[in-house]
Design a protein around this nucleic acid. Structure first.
Lengths: 236, 236
DNA sequence: TTGATTAATTGTACCGGTACAATTATAGTA
DNA sequence: TACTATAATTGTACCGGTACAATTAATCAA
């Protein structure tokens, strides 16, 4: 783990353990520097990371302050999307409906930037948060990048496996979201009625070299899913 | 405008003007350095900004590449949320239903961190993209921070006014989203049926000093709104 | 006490540099 | 040709430093 990531993690841990509230002030830069025994640019980088994550905000001439949103029950949109495994104390489980190798249809192939003759893993899951139905997910993995999957891996975290055992790094993702109505099969999986409202998110995950390796379609249970997104300022 | 912001803007403009595609390679760091006549750390900062914005991705040992998503018709979730006024070539218009000074109810007051006896501006709008109904919005501004609003300002961009004329800077925002069904009045504004599906987003905008100044509730037309969010890697 | 002026505090912009890890290109070998 | 070892390329981590703008605290005047 990089030094600035380590420092960021420690500061975040400190904030959580001491249950600091929105607006609470952290030690000044110079003190953090000596406290963690790193240079100014390293501590700055760590703080920038935490700022992006929505954990702190910095105010020139004033100090470094804790940032918090005050709505329990809302999950970070990104934590449910592979990134930042921070689900708090909620328990995430899965019913694995399918893990198989197939050929992609044109839509899937196009989203993954591959040919319809290339192999993909198809994974189908219903996911639960604290025992409540949360979403229905259908996802496709490029087999050339993810050569092996099984029910055990899929029941846990695919991303941890991919980054751990396969040694590839996930770079970025494009999420496409829209609201619609449930189909009959989706409604069955989610325990809802056909034509009930739903949020659909399609996501294309790319490796850090830019290659797409996972295309997934998630259909959320509209009563059991509410999200928070902490955005940072007008960039320019 | 800061130097690194300026450089970032120029690079982005270059990418758009030359219509570069996903994966296209930009000049190497050292060349960009001399090309824009800035130091390494400045160009790095500019590129980091573009990376966060989803315009490029960088790959160590390899180069700097253009990043693009390939779905026209999807709007950036953040561009519709005050930040990054990049709506492409779409035209955004508004029907202003109400601009008035009132007292907030408990919910509004709590979200804005003020007292129910404090004054707020209430703004109610129906917004259109290229003439199509896009969303219904009800928002509240802390009058102590935004002392004056009128229909003309509100029909245009409130945020530009606040940052321009009032000289305050917007820092960050917390967005809370969930799916539900339309009420009768909402359906009326959006030209839909009662109980039709909808995406609701509540957002609390904070100044850069951390003070909330705007709380808004937006109800989106589910057939005319689809969003893209470009996320960046597992931070740690 | 109030208000304005000045000084101290504090984060950020910008500069420059070294070391290194990941990638890609090259040379060498079978 | 195909594979391996080596070298060149290239972005990132990390160090340190100066100048400055925004905020806050202290000082002074009325």
């Amino acid at each position: 783990m990089l030094k600035y990531q380590q420092v960021a993690a420690e500061i975040e841990q400190y904030i959580n353990q001491h249950d600091l509230k929105q607006g609470n002030k952290l030690p000044v830069l110079e003190q953090l520097m000596s406290q963690y025994a790193v240079s100014k640019s390293t501590i700055t980088k760590a703080l920038e990371l935490l700022e992006r994550k929505g954990v702190i905000f910095q105010l020139r001439g004033s100090g470094i302050f804790v940032r918090r949103h005050n709505r329990p029950g809302y999950m970070s949109l990104f934590s449910t999307q592979g990134f930042k495994s921070n689900l708090g104390d909620r328990v995430l489980t899965s019913d694995v409906l399918d893990v198989s190798v197939t050929k992609p249809d044109v839509t899937v192939a196009q989203n993954l930037g591959i040919d319809v003759t290339d192999d993909v893993y198809r994974v189908e899951r219903v996911r639960f948060v604290d025992g409540e139905v949360f979403c229905y997910e259908e996802s496709y993995y490029v087999k050339a990048i993810v050569p092996y999957l099984n029910r055990e891996i899929v029941a846990d975290s695919i991303f941890d496996y991919v980054q751990g055992a396969l040694g590839v790094t996930i770079g970025f993702s494009d999420m496409y979201m829209q609201v619609g109505r449930l189909t009959e099969t989706e409604a069955g999986y989610l325990g809802l009625q056909t034509d009930d409202p739903t949020l659909r998110i399609e996501t294309i995950f790319h490796l850090s070299n830019g290659k797409p390796f996972d295309y997934s379609r998630i259909t959320y249970h509209y009563e059991h899913s509410q999200f928070v997104v902490q955005a940072n300022g007008p960039y320019m």
